[in-house]
Computed example of a mutant assay.
Amino acid sequence: MANSHLVISDEVGAALLAGSPVVALESTLITHGFPFPANIETATAMEDAIRAEGAVPATIAVINGQIRVGLSRDEIEMLGGLGSAGVRKCSRRDLPIVVGLKQHGATTVAGTMIVAHMAGISVFATGGIGGVHRGHPQDISADLIELGRTPITVVCAGAKSILDLPLTLEVLETQGVPVIGYGTETLPAFYSRSSGLPVDQRVDTPEDVARIARARDALRLAHGILVTVPVPEADALPEDVAEAAIAEATRQADALGIHGKDVTPFVLGNVLELTEGRSQQANIAALVNNARTGAQIAAALAILP
């Protein structure tokens, strides 16, 4: 279906036409996730990891009201320079606003899933998805709802461990989203390799993920598939270190009355300080590793009958 607001880069368009592997990437990590220049360095490292596996990266954002699928290096640097002050964070509710008012927008997990599906991209790699906030069970990320209604394979390091992981899994179950452990039988905890919570199925190869995705499509099921990959061991935070920092940062957020969409950036920032930068190291390692894994899954999908 033609969409005048959607602009697909020549490289991504050619790959899609040829049936070559393509991996979608979000843009909030560029504008809201990391400070300059780590934001640009991380975004380009993810693209490089995808290219190294023979796939094409498609970083997604909205620029002057135009949804772009596949950003140039100049566009990534422009967004990175603007940061959160000049770019709106875009989930489902925000896309018509930024498009209609010709604003800049950085896509969240939910926003990236929507646009990737519009463009015909079936695999998306990110760091951690949103979930249910600790102590605030009514505060549920739009990412979980989107996973229940958009058929994209999302590769991540689990939900951000600053969240309530057991409740997040409950919502994913309600939404009908299979949670796959890639090389693990337990849900990764973003900064750490395991939360101790069981996943729905362990797989060990990209081909297995591709078979599950193909079966979902053959059954005409319209939900996403969540593929959870542990952060590389060398960069992971010990579970007790991560949990202590998260608990303290969450306590501070509650004490200051911070809620809603402001909780996640506040807590992530405090965890960064409390772990003396180790949380950012783990986050970046997970992002690059997930991009690489996403490319391998996209390649497996491209050759699967």
Rank of each mutant, 00 (worst) to 15 (best):
I145P: 12
T250N: 10
A159S: 11
V132W: 02
I162E: 00
A15T: 09
I97A: 11
V288F: 09
L237K: 08
E248H: 12
G131S: 11
Q175G: 13
D164Y: 02
C90A: 14
V155H: 01
S9A: 13
D74R: 14
I8F: 04
V199F: 04
C90P: 09
H32C: 04
T108M: 13
P305Y: 11
R92T: 08
N290Y: 10
D235L: 08
V241W: 10
H104M: 09
I8K: 01
D74I: 14
V271T: 07
S161I: 08
L79Y: 03
Y182P: 02
A116V: 01
Q201L: 15
A52R: 03
D262E: 09
V199P: 02
I297M: 05
R216C: 12
T44N: 12
A291R: 03
D217F: 15
V69T: 01
A116K: 03
V177S: 03
V123F: 10
F36A: 11
T31L: 11
V62D: 02
A215E: 07
G19Y: 00
V115D: 03
M113A: 10
D74K: 13
P238S: 14
G176C: 07
I297T: 06
N289W: 10
N289E: 09
G257R: 05
D200I: 07
R202Y: 07
F124W: 10
G86M: 07
V271K: 01
H136N: 04
G100Q: 06
L82E: 03
L172R: 00
T293P: 05
T42D: 01
N64A: 15
P21Q: 07
T184V: 07
A245M: 06
V62E: 03
G148A: 05
S161N: 15
T228K: 01
E11D: 08
T108E: 09
H5Q: 10
V171K: 03
I152T: 00
L169P: 03
R202C: 12
V179D: 02
L287K: 09
T150S: 14
A245R: 00
H223L: 13
H133W: 03
K102P: 15
P166L: 09
L163F: 14
Q175M: 15
D217E: 13
T174H: 13
L82H: 06
R216H: 11
A142L: 14
V288L: 08
I76P: 03
M1D: 10
I60N: 02
A14Y: 07
A234Q: 12
Y182G: 00
E248I: 08
P198N: 10
A159I: 04
D254M: 11
L167M: 14
F36K: 09
F36I: 11
M46C: 15
R278G: 03
S122C: 11
V115M: 08
E41K: 12
D74P: 13
G128R: 01
S279I: 11
T205W: 02
G33S: 07
R214Q: 13
G135E: 06
I140K: 06
L79R: 01
